[in-house]
Simulated scan of single mutants.
Amino acid sequence: MDKEAQLIEELVKNALYRMDESTRMIKKSLEAITEDETWQKPNEALNSIGNLVLHLCGNMTQYIISSLGDTEDIRNRDEEFNTQGGLTKNELVKKLEDTVDDAKRVIFDAGLSNW
Rank of each mutant, 00 (worst) to 15 (best):
M1W: 08
D2V: 12
K3Q: 11
E4H: 12
A5R: 12
Q6C: 12
Q6T: 14
L7F: 08
E10V: 10
L11W: 08
L11Y: 09
L11I: 05
V12D: 00
N14M: 11
N14Q: 15
N14I: 12
A15I: 09
Y17K: 14
R18G: 01
R18H: 13
M19V: 03
D20M: 13
E21C: 02
E21A: 12
E21D: 09
E21V: 09
T23S: 15
R24D: 11
R24Y: 07
R24W: 05
I26D: 02
K27N: 11
K28N: 10
K28C: 06
K28A: 15
K28Q: 10
K28M: 07
S29D: 02
S29K: 15
L30R: 03
L30K: 04
L30F: 04
E31Y: 08
A32R: 12
I33W: 01
I33P: 00
E35F: 05
D36M: 11
D36W: 02
D36V: 13
D36Y: 01
E37K: 01
E37W: 04
T38S: 10
W39S: 03
K41G: 05
K41V: 14
P42Q: 14
P42D: 06
N43R: 09
E44C: 04
A45S: 14
A45E: 14
A45H: 10
L46M: 13
N47I: 06
S48V: 13
I49N: 01
G50L: 11
L52H: 06
L52I: 15
V53T: 07
V53F: 01
H55L: 11
L56K: 01
L56M: 11
G58W: 01
G58F: 04
N59E: 00
N59H: 01
N59V: 14
M60D: 04
M60G: 09
T61Y: 10
Q62K: 13
Q62C: 04
Y63F: 15
I64M: 09
I65G: 06
I65N: 05
I65P: 04
L68F: 15
L68M: 15
G69H: 13
G69I: 09
G69S: 02
G69R: 14
D70M: 02
T71N: 07
E72W: 00
E72Y: 08
D73S: 10
R75V: 06
N76M: 07
R77G: 03
R77E: 03
N82F: 08
N82I: 05
N82Q: 12
T83N: 02
G85M: 09
G85L: 03
G86W: 00
G86A: 06
L87V: 04
L87D: 02
E91R: 15
L92S: 04
L92R: 13
V93G: 07
K94M: 14
K94W: 08
K95I: 13
L96F: 00
L96N: 11
E97P: 09
E97A: 13
E97N: 11
D98A: 13
V100Y: 02
V100C: 10
V100P: 02
D102F: 00
D102R: 15
A103C: 05
K104A: 11
K104E: 02
R105W: 03
V106S: 03
V106H: 03
F108T: 10
D109Q: 10
D109G: 00
A110M: 09
G111Q: 07
G111I: 03
L112W: 10
L112P: 00
L112K: 13
L112I: 14
L112Q: 08
S113F: 11
N114A: 12
N114W: 13
W115C: 12
